[in-house]
Simulated scan of single mutants.
Amino acid sequence: MADIWLMRHGAYEGHRPGHHAPHEAALTPEGRDQVRHSLPLPESITALVTSPIPRARQTATLIAHLTGLPIVATTGLLAEWRAPSIILGRTAEIYPPAYRAWRARRLAYPALRCEDGESLTDLHTRARHCANFLRHTAQRNGPLLAVSHTLLLGVLTRLPEGPAAFAAAAQSPWQFAELRPFVLGRPSRPASTGFGH
């Protein structure tokens, strides 16, 4: 069994495919049910770590409440990709021209940022630091469950692909409350027990 497991948070308020949600979006009752249905966790897990963004933090808090496992860290390393504020709450049909231009160039120029957003290089660098953080935290606390967000999880599990991992992560999002083992250096696959929703 893996020393580190990864989970995407449950469904949140205002979710729509292709929509970049505001950070403060909270879990919905459906999201809480998805988290409950993800249990039981693999027996080896001894601790939780989470993103500070409310939907992930609420997911981890609910798991901690239901299982008795401690949350040993809340870290921005597990936060979702920081989208530029000009697109928060918008869908692709109404993205502003500056963001559309950035999207067209982002893979060719991964260090390019769109306004206050995180570049693909920034996200990949953070994911590398996150992998090291998870490894060290698991060494100190035992097998972990890390609760995070679909794009960060996608890049984290595809680190060898470099900043271009963002494109693959965007094309194959994690399901809400989906649980996967984290194998450093290789894309992870959903757990065979079918925890995903």
Rank of each mutant, 00 (worst) to 15 (best):
L78W: 00
H37M: 12
G89F: 09
L62D: 04
L39V: 06
H149S: 04
L107M: 08
H124F: 04
A111H: 14
F182A: 09
F182E: 10
R82G: 09
R106T: 14
E161S: 15
Q175C: 15
L112N: 08
L152N: 04
G89P: 05
R128H: 14
I45G: 02
T75P: 02
D3I: 12
G154M: 04
L151Q: 12
L145V: 04
T193V: 13
V72G: 00
H124I: 00
L62G: 05
P54Q: 11
S44N: 11
T59R: 11
L77W: 07
T150K: 10
P173V: 02
P97W: 11
I4G: 02
A21T: 04
Q58Y: 04
R126K: 08
R55I: 08
H15D: 15
G14A: 06
P96H: 13
R82K: 13
S51I: 01
P160R: 03
V35S: 03
L152C: 06
Y95N: 10
V35C: 06
D116Y: 03
A64H: 07
E80W: 01
T50V: 03
N141P: 07
Y109D: 14
H149A: 00
A104D: 00
A11P: 10
A104P: 00
R103F: 09
G194Y: 11
H149I: 01
R128P: 00
A165S: 10
F176V: 13
L159A: 07
L144I: 04
W81V: 07
L78Q: 06
H197K: 14
V72N: 01
R180F: 12
P54D: 08
T91A: 15
E93P: 08
F195E: 12
H19T: 12
F166M: 04
F182K: 05
E13Y: 09
A11K: 13
A79H: 07
R55W: 01
M1W: 10
L153K: 02
G10N: 15
A146V: 02
E161K: 07
P173E: 08
L153H: 03
T50R: 02
R180T: 08
E115N: 08
A56R: 10
T59M: 06
I53Y: 05
P17H: 13
S119A: 05
E24G: 12
P143K: 10
